[in-house]
């Protein structure tokens, strides 16, 4: 029995070593050296701290993948799904910590969070298909249900795991361990590749779900894909943002860039706005020693308000731009509906 397992075990350990080397190269050699250099050049000390280097890496990843799924969710008025999955991920974290405490094993909480959130994503999608629409009620039931499971699990042990849970609820720069940073980079790659491959059907469905179905696109399959990728984003972003605020990085940058013309460009703009928000947020959070998630969200919302005010002011002062002037057909409306 043990003899048969031996090759498998050594295979796994070989694989683990290889992954570890790859992670080491990516995080320490490539990213670490780059930021060390930047720290020396600029004289900004915090860029040289390994844990801040990982925090910035996480910030960049979050600001890429959040808007990537957010663009599709926001324009289908499915933003609540992100929040629901975040709370489900919290139940997953609690389950992981619980299992670790009771059975003395070492399941990474992010891994259990990923599994629970992905299952919740499929569950939500099934509920939504069954109810025929993105009903607030079914989302609210899954959201509160998952959070309830989480809170029960935390208190089921003798309070031992309640200590670690705060970091997941509100997010923290210190929770981004090497393992978590590597996991986030991997998850970002999965999300980016997934969205890139499914971009066309997802855009079609977002714009006109019935038309997409009529032309033979497997709407249900792509909806499931989007839900699962959202779960991945939520779990990835959770470490810094915290469960309660993670949905903000999916929603706010996208909402900020709705005045950009063209869907693809608006997503690119949202990624840009997201980068500005997360990098500024992480920096301020370090300098004033306040919660990273909250700081990032406040910066992002600040950008949102400033952009909306700017667009409004621009719309009032500028007379019709050439692109918007003189509609050519007789019904001549150009007013936003």
């Amino acid at each position: 029995m043990s003899n048969a397992l031996l090759p498998a075990a050594s295979g796994i350990s070989l694989l683990a070593t290889a992954v570890d080397r790859g992670v080491g190269f990516l995080l320490d050699t490539l990213w670490g050296t780059m930021l060390d250099l930047l720290a020396q050049l600029t004289g900004i000390g915090m860029l040289g701290f390994p844990y801040m280097q990982r925090a910035y890496l996480a910030a960049i990843c979050i600001a890429v993948i959040g808007p990537l799924v957010g663009g599709f969710l926001v324009h289908r008025e499915m933003a609540m799904i992100a929040d629901t999955l975040a709370h489900s991920a919290f139940a997953g974290v609690a389950a992981g910590l619980f299992v670790n405490a009771v059975y003395a094993v070492a399941v990474p909480p992010l891994l259990s969070a990923l599994i629970v959130a992905a299952v919740a994503a499929l569950l939500v999608q099934t509920l939504v298909d069954y109810a025929g629409a993105y009903r607030d009620t079914s989302l609210a039931i899954v959201l509160t249900g998952a959070f309830a499971v989480g809170s029960v699990l935390i208190t089921a042990t003798d309070g031992g795991i309640a200590v670690g849970i705060n970091a997941y609820l509100f997010g923290s720069l210190a929770t981004v361990s090497r393992f978590n940073a590597a996991l986030l980079v991997a998850m970002s790659a999965v999300v980016t590749i997934g969205i890139t491959l499914a971009y066309r059907p997802l855009v079609y469905i977002t714009f006109d779900e019935v038309g997409a179905r009529a032309s033979g696109i497997h709407v249900k399959r792509y909806n499931q894909l989007l839900a699962v990728l959202t779960a991945v984003v939520v779990v990835g972003a959770m470490q810094i943002m915290g469960v309660i605020l993670v949905a903000a990085m999916i929603v706010v940058p996208v909402a900020t860039s709705t005045s950009v013309r063209g869907f693809k460009r608006s997503i690119a703009a949202a990624v840009g706005v997201g980068q500005l928000g997360t990098i500024t947020g992480v920096t301020l959070s370090y300098q004033y020693d306040v919660a990273a998630g909250g700081t990032i969200v406040l910066v992002a919302i600040g950008l949102y308000v400033a952009t909306k005010l700017g667009v409004r002011a621009g719309g009032r002062t500028a007379t019709e731009t050439p692109g918007r002037a003189a509609p050519r057909t007789a019904d001549g409306g150009d007013e936003p509906r």
Partner: peptide, 9 residues
């Protein structure tokens, strides 16, 4: 932008 067009357009 499609959302800024009139119904007929």
């Amino acid at each position: 932008r499609v959302g800024r067009l009139s119904g007929g357009q």
